[in-house]
Design a protein around this nucleic acid. Structure first.
Length: 246
DNA sequence: CACCAGGCCGTGC
DNA sequence: GCACGGCATGGT
């Protein structure tokens, strides 16, 4: 089965990708402008191979998830094949700090404004997401001026404590979560997104407002361990399904 | 005018 | 430990 590329790129895992029309999606990553129409386009590029986690068997995982119960079967069927992205630690951290009490459209807009203000132009009109060094020296006032609102001091704290992002790989989930949560504005939900979509910690299970409804309505009394060993990917199928369902 | 969005922080108990 | 209000901004 073919991947649901739109859902993977624009469904809330990442805020880097843009719909260029005619089935083309673009993103500025790794000092390049990448343009792709399918996952197959990524197979020959080392950076994208890692980014799209091409060495993991998502087809097999999807089949096993669909066999778990009726709800997951429905979620998988309506969504198509998903993958979990392997994003840059810093980009994921700021992206999901921006995501709290926010919506995907506005998060993407803020991501763009940060890129244009602090990043650099890789191609005409295409700006990289700024590195911590490029953002260093900014102020709460400047950030608020870009529209990030109450998240401004959280971003400043992340700039200051960015070195913790290099100490997460290899840690167990709980310890990794604890370290991330030392940064202001990172609680359990934001931490889980960073750990899944940047550190490949597949036992994460983000509980946002949508997923809390799903759990209360369809999995009362159950906790994320029910979905083991596919916590994160199952969550992503349920998230996509319930959002499409309304 | 409300209420919501891939929540978290500070306070009070 | 848990419950609660506040929080910037833009959309419905």
């Amino acid at each position: 089965m073919e991947e649901n590329l739109r859902e993977i790129l624009l469904g809330g895992q990442s805020f880097s990708w843009r719909d260029e029309g005619d089935g083309v999606f673009s993103a500025v990553l790794n000092e390049h402008v990448y343009r792709i129409r399918s996952i197959a386009d990524a197979a020959s590029d080392p950076f994208l191979r890692s980014y799209f986690d091409l060495d993991y068997d998502y087809a097999k995982a999807m089949e096993e998830i669909a066999r778990k119960d009726e709800i997951l079967s429905k979620a998988v069927e309506s969504t198509g094949m998903l993958r979990l992205l392997h994003q840059d630690h810093w980009i994921a951290t700021i992206s999901f700090i921006l995501s709290q009490n926010n919506n995907i459209k506005r998060i993407t807009g803020l991501y763009d404004r940060l890129s244009r203000r602090f990043g650099h132009e890789v191609e005409p009109g295409y700006f990289s997401f700024p590195s911590p060094e490029e953002m260093e020296g900014t102020t709460e006032e400047e950030l608020r001026g870009l529209g990030v609102g109450f998240r401004a001091p959280f971003i400043l704290d992340a700039i200051e404590k960015r070195s913790v992002l290099d100490e997460i790989d290899g840690l167990g989930y709980e310890e990794a979560e604890k370290r991330l949560m030392n940064i202001k504005g990172i609680g359990p939900k934001v931490a889980s997104c960073i750990l899944i979509f940047s550190y490949q910690k597949r036992e994460g299970f983000p509980l946002d407002v949508w997923m809390k409804k799903v759990m209360a309505e369809y999995y009362p009394g159950k906790d994320p361990s029910y979905f083991h060993p596919y916590e994160a990917l199952s969550q992503q199928y349920l998230f996509s399904w319930i959002r499409a369902e309304g």
